[in-house]
Computed example of a mutant assay.
Amino acid sequence: MIAAFVVAIVALMLSWVPIINNGAAFLALVALVLGIVGLVNAARKGRPGKGMAVAAVVISVVSLVVVVTTQIAYGRVLDEFVEELDSASTSQLEGAASADATADAAADEDESAASAVRELAVVESAFGQNTYDPTTWWYVVIVENPNAEHVFPLAGLDVEAIGADGTILDSGSTYVDVLPGRVALTGSFMSVGTGVIDHLDLRGPDVTDALHKPGAGSFTVTDVAAATDEWSTTVGGNLSGSFVDEQSLVKVVVVARNAQGQIIDADFSFVDRLPPGVQARFEVNFMTALPADTTYEVYPAL
């Protein structure tokens, strides 16, 4: 009887513990059998301990009920945990897939946008010997950025003077932000010597250097006028821009054309500061007196 009671008590204590309560169920069955045997012996042979045997049977049955109940409860909790874990894993996988799809779409969009960018194009070029020093040559190249929403930032543009036999006689470099539209490159070749320039070549940035920058801003030129004396011609005007930020050291190139429309000279100066919504005065001085019927084109650049 005592053994049945002790085993039943141990089974009841362990019946609440997950996993271990599997063993508690076995102990409860053992205690139940021992308790029933004790009851039978007490009834047939009149042995003492009937009360303890009854207690062992009752406690054993309670232990079995607790084991079954807790197993069901723990099983539900475990199932819910597994479902939540599966759901979280599925969400993470779906999120990763969505992020990959978004990244792929963005990459495809960037690749498509990059493939749509067109190269800079040379619109016109001209060159000539300076009248005040025939050993030096002036040059000008008008370049167009045909991309309405792309900018070539700090683009390195190299103008090469090429002789009739293909020899590179000299070169000049310019670094500017090429905005949508046209920009003019001008300068002097100092090392041509006794050579004769046949044509100009331009080396510029690749299309992959272009940045997608809608609304980058543009310049407006007004009140262009020329004043000529015996030795030189000065071309001046007003410059403004649609830029959000203040611009500094704006390069202003002036191209001079004769009555037939041919480029006969070019020179440049700088506007030190161009605040938003403000006009700034510019003046470009040509070291020769240009004809009265000369027309002028102004090309500002950052």
Rank of each mutant, 00 (worst) to 15 (best):
S98C: 04
L93S: 13
E84P: 01
V77Q: 15
L78Y: 09
R47Y: 11
G35I: 06
A24R: 01
R76A: 12
L78V: 11
V68I: 03
Y74Q: 11
I59T: 10
V65Q: 01
A97I: 12
L85V: 12
I72Q: 09
V40F: 07
E80H: 04
A43I: 11
S87L: 06
V58W: 00
V62L: 00
S91Q: 10
K45Y: 13
E94N: 07
G46M: 05
G51W: 03
R44F: 14
L85D: 13
A73N: 11
S89R: 14
A97G: 13
A25R: 10
G49K: 01
E83T: 14
V61L: 05
E94D: 12
G51N: 02
L64H: 02
R47T: 13
L34Q: 11
L64C: 00
G95I: 10
G46T: 06
V82G: 07
V68Y: 08
D79A: 14
A53R: 00
E94S: 13
R44K: 14
M52T: 02
A88E: 10
K45M: 14
I59W: 03
I72H: 07
Q71Y: 07
T90Y: 05
K50E: 08
I72A: 10
A88T: 05
S87V: 03
L85M: 15
V67I: 02
L64V: 02
S63I: 02
V68H: 03
D79E: 14
F26K: 08
L39W: 00
L27E: 03
A56L: 05
G38D: 09
S98D: 05
A55P: 03
A97H: 08
L34M: 11
G38Q: 08
A88D: 05
V57C: 07
L34N: 07
E83I: 14
M52G: 04
Y74W: 10
G49H: 05
V37M: 12
A55M: 06
V54Y: 02
V68N: 08
A25E: 11
D79N: 11
S87T: 03
L78S: 14
A56V: 04
V62F: 00
V37W: 10
E80N: 07
V77F: 06
E80Q: 11
